[in-house]
Design a protein around this nucleic acid. Structure first.
Lengths: 247, 247
DNA sequence: GAGTGGTCTAGACCACATT
DNA sequence: ATGTGGTCTAGACCACTCC
């Protein structure tokens, strides 16, 4: 049973999708929505805050809320699992482990996973494809306490996230994504079947448990033209930041 | 004078930066923070919600909030203005207009700017540099009602955003960013002084007024290795989405 | 000046985590 | 069992927009 404010947020999203509140138009006032849904103004505010964070509506003191767009943003589950994302689009995801071995943590590993240098980590190299075409080269480094569960996975496992959830109840909660573009190196080029120097979209991220403990960090490289990422932001809610150089 | 909840949010950010609440540790309870700052629990919740949205702390029902990191995220102003961003890092931004002309809107322009095909738009091509090195190629298309103000700007104007604000009080509020990687074309390569086919990080976005009216759309291409973008997300707050292909 | 969203309060109850 | 965050209410006042 979802919370009332989530139900209202979803009702508003659907109303926008239906064109009941057209793009460029305004939403009803908070007072009117309170009456319509039989809730207090605070609950309505929780609902519209969600749409504001998604970039679907704009909000300014004194003026009615404005509908900015009807783009559907993805669920967290779809973002974190390549297989679930592919399935949601009606496409077939493939996955293959190319290399998997334990090694001592480098300084970079230690910093990102909040462990000591030299502690054991598990490194995994995977290629993932969409409808047979390779699109993504994934380099993961797992903390030692996760290694056993990961090693038990079959090499052709399509959904690591789902498998780990079913095996050991592991829940992932991302921290931060760093996005840039790099040229394909020799290994990248061979495994992704592109020319050396081809542009790749690189996403580096650290994944943690809900309690904040780092699980793994990963370097994902997408073949240019296969995948793009979108970020919604608005004044007062800005999840996107620009940084100089690359670590 | 900032709102009380913003003051509290900033105080908590600084406490985290000082190490008073170390990464991996927990924050005080809402009740304790209410007492400490002399505000109601609702106001405390507004403050911690901001830190949660920034990805600095994690939140789960029943458990204390956890400190996830002490990264400083940027202000909205720093993201939207290349010149302000460079200045904040102590570097010098340059900017030069290479081409600027009016033309009828294409179908793509019309859709993005919510105007009719054939309506006049102003197209601008700019190169921007950091400490003399070309870093960014910016292609902007402005709606006609913005064109006069943009045309009055000097060709070597470093901060378009700031100039437009001072001239006509224009405030920008982004909508959506689409991020991918592309190979440098002939023009890209010449203007950015890189080889053809070099990887470029591409950000496409539509900018609107606070009322939701589209001002301009832009295609920014960054030389690989000069700039990266970061997105914070967490379960329940996911501003990042993955998309297949590229428009 | 009327309308609307932003801020803040004080209290209640529930769901979940921890012990 | 206790503590904690999540949800919701009802009301107040303020800052800003728009007519």
């Amino acid at each position: 049973m979802a919370a009332r404010h989530e139900e209202i947020a979803e009702a508003l999203r659907q109303a926008i999708d239906r064109g009941e509140y057209p793009v460029g138009g305004t939403l009803p006032t908070e007072t009117e929505l309170s009456a319509r849904y039989g809730v207090s103004r605070g609950t309505v505010r929780q609902a519209v805050a969600a749409l504001t964070a998604e970039g679907r509506i704009g909000s300014r003191q004194g003026a009615r809320r404005v509908v900015l767009g009807n783009r559907r943003s993805q669920s967290f589950a779809e973002l974190r699992s390549f297989a679930q994302w592919a399935a949601a689009m009606g496409r077939t995801a493939t996955g293959r482990v190319l290399d998997q071995h334990r090694r001592p943590a480098t300084l970079e590993d230690a910093e990102k996973l909040q462990i000591k240098p030299g502690d054991e980590v598990l490194q995994v190299l995977r290629v993932r494809g969409l409808d047979g075409e390779p699109v993504l080269l994934e380099r993961n480094v797992y903390a030692a306490w996760m290694a056993d569960a990961v090693e038990r996975l079959p090499a052709d496992c399509t959904s690591v996230v789902q498998a780990l959830y079913e095996d050991i109840g592991m829940i992932f909660a991302y921290g931060e994504h760093v996005i840039d573009a790099v040229a394909a190196g020799a290994e990248d080029a061979r495994l992704l079947e592109v020319r050396r120097g081809s542009p790749l979209l690189r996403i580096r991220r650290v994944t943690t448990t809900p309690a904040g403990r780092p699980i793994e960090w990963s370097d994902d490289r997408y073949v240019s033209g296969t995948v793009s990422f979108t970020v919604a932001n608005s004044i007062g809610s800005n999840p996107l930041a620009r940084q100089a150089g690359q670590a």
